[in-house]
Nucleic acid binder design. Sequence first.
DNA 1: ATGGCCAATATGATTGGA
Length: 260
Amino acid sequence: MRIATWNVNSVKQRIDHLVAWLGEAQPDVVCLQEIKCVDEAFPTAEIEALGYNVATHGQKTFNGVALLSKRPFDEIRRGLPGDEEDVQSRYIEGVFSTDSGVVRIASIYLPNGNPPDTEKYPYKLAWMDRLIRHAKDLLALEEPLVLAGDYNVIPTPRDVHDPVAWAGDALFLPQTRAKFTELVALGLTDAFRACDIREGQYSFWDYQAGAWQKNNGIRIDHLLLSPEATDRLASCRIDKHVRSWEKPSDHVPVIADLRL
DNA sequence: ATGGCCAATATGATTGGA
């Protein structure tokens, strides 16, 4: 089973890229972030025409996540548990049946948190605490589990071209990285790093200042796997070439193949 | 030269992104 995550930075702007990339990458499940539209505005018919089932958790203008799957959904959960007041659409989870049992896959759009001296940063940290609590519950199920998405976290200096420039950023602050470490320490595996330890492997390049041309990137899009999913991990790659397409998202897809 | 973008929104300056 091929599982991918991609922050498309508006599905309306990126529908042609999405269709083209689905055709070449042939993923079984896709976790999308920043669809930036309400559920009714999602191009569901175009995606269904390619053989995918679609589940969205949209929002007007900002955020919004979705799951695309060749297999039907057994269950869908919309929204991250732990705060009834939170109206931002940043989490959707689906359960699928395969020949070798169930697999649970979530599409995550973790808050950016900048600037750190505003209420945005505590919101990010609190959201991470909620994710840790929920991940703990899901891990107790002892199923193949994939928590995939735009984490807005640079895990280590190896994951950023210019660590000094990002030192004070909400994506790289020690407190942010500590929370991410706490999440991983529950027993999750960073699928990409399990397959590739090279420096200079990024999933995001800013639109500004020629960041793409200089490979001035960061690796912030991750697939975190439960032990049962890690046992089945075959490969993981970043589809970097998509960033060179005309009018691209600032993120590129990350894809893991699991023997499921 | 150290800047340079992009998307959505009662389409014009603002907000948010990272």
